[in-house]
């Protein structure tokens, strides 16, 4: 039984112009110890998908799924109280805005201890010790003295580390990190990613990493799910998807990465012309067809979900490729235990 089973997840948001189909029929599974990267542009529905797992969607969003199970627990049937008990304890989330995701009115120590004290009924001292331990673990020096500080006294990088420590307080089985490095500068990004990967291996957690950065995916993830306009267009093990990208959108994404040694300075990177279509109102066919070089009449009708190799699926009428000449030589092995 997989830790997480998402089957045909759909999220609709009512707007003044009509129903916005933000996420359509997204399915994936995740085992303990795996890292799934959900990749896509802004507005592709990747963040909403992760929020839907935590049941933290905006209140007007409508979530539906054939099945939504965490460790066998049916999340759709679970009571509000059951979900509260899961959140922060067995599944935790790290948000992308370290500047605004911490409450300005309370100290770091208070906010860190909260989750543990809520779920484990421990005393202040234990919660405090655990907070210090985790702050040290995420690489914060003088951890004990940070506990009395307020969020505004910390830099963005430190706050993001605090957020990660906060997510780890109860040693969750699943941790969802929504663009955990976007707000940070490049050197800190690398540190935080390494940290996440190390912690994930140390604690044996499942990790969902939501990102628009394929470089991050290559370095951290074992599985990848590519989302476009609310749909999952291609998913599978990172080696398979990056080695034989079968959906034209995935290929377009990969072309947009500069590859050391192959991309010459000043040479334009591949871009995908056109715009993401509006998701308001009834949708049909492939939503990428208005930007796709291979678009045909058949793209306007139902698109089959096809298997490329076992575990590697894609949604396109084109035949899957077995190898791809342009495949970027990404440092995939970086993510293996050293």
């Amino acid at each position: 039984m997989p830790l997480l089973d998402v089957d045909h997840l759909t999220i609709d948001i009512p707007t003044e112009g009509g129903l916005l189909h933000a996420v359509n029929d997204v399915s994936f599974t995740l085992e303990r110890g795996e890292t799934l990267a959900i990749v896509g542009e802004s507005g592709s529905g990747k963040s909403l998908t992760s929020l839907a797992l935590m049941d933290l969607l905006p209140s007007k969003a409508i979530r539906r799924a054939r099945s939504l199970r965490f460790d066998g627990i049916d999340l759709q049937a679970a009571s509000e109280r059951d979900k509260e008990n899961l959140r922060g304890d067995r599944m935790a989330m790290i948000f992308q805005e370290p500047m605004t995701s911490l409450n300005p009115a309370y100290t770091i120590g208070d906010q860190l201890a909260e989750a543990l004290r809520r779920h484990r009924k421990v005393d202040r001292k234990t919660a405090r010790d655990r907070a210090v331990h985790l702050l040290e673990r995420v690489g914060i020096t003088a951890a004990a003295s940070r506990l009395g500080q307020y969020p505004h006294q910390l830099s963005g990088g430190l706050r993001q580390r605090v957020m990660i420590a906060m997510g780890l307080m109860c040693e969750p089985d699943l941790i969802i990190a929504d663009e955990p490095t976007t707000a940070l500068d490049v050197t800190i990004q690398a540190q935080i990613l390494k940290l996440l990967r190390d912690l994930q291996q140390e604690f044996g957690m499942a990790l969902i990493l939501v990102t628009h950065d394929l470089g991050v995916v290559a370095r951290v993830a074992t599985k990848v799910a590519v989302m476009y306009a609310g749909r999952l267009v291609e998913t599978g093990p990172v080696e398979a998807v990056f080695g034989a990208p079968s959906h034209p959108y995935t290929r377009g994404l990969l072309r947009a990465i500069p590859v050391p040694g192959r991309t010459r300075p000043g040479e334009p990177l591949g871009t995908i012309p056109g715009q993401v279509p509006s998701l308001v109102g009834p949708l049909s066919g492939c939503s990428f067809r208005n930007r796709c070089d291979h678009a045909q009449d058949a793209c306007a009708s139902e698109i089959p979900d096809r298997t490329v190799t076992p575990g590697h699926r894609m949604a396109c009428i084109l035949d899957p490729v077995q190898t791809w000449a342009e495949a970027p030589a990404l440092a995939l092995d970086d993510r293996r235990p050293q």
């Binding site: 935590m54 933290l56 509260e84 008990n85 899961l86 959140r87 922060g88 304890d89 935790a92 989330m93 948000f95 805005e97 605004t100 995701s101 911490l102 409450n103 300005p104 009115a105 309370y106 906010q111 909260e114 989750a115 809520r118 779920h119 957020m163 906060m166």
Partner: peptide, 26 residues
């Protein structure tokens, strides 16, 4: 509607605590 309320909910805090400790205080 702020991010830190979402954080508080993500910790599994019960609604009264989210409402009175985290929201009303601000």
């Amino acid at each position: 509607a702020s991010d830190y309320i979402r954080t508080a909910r993500a910790k599994g805090l019960r609604w009264p605590q989210v409402l009175f400790k985290h929201a009303l205080r601000n």
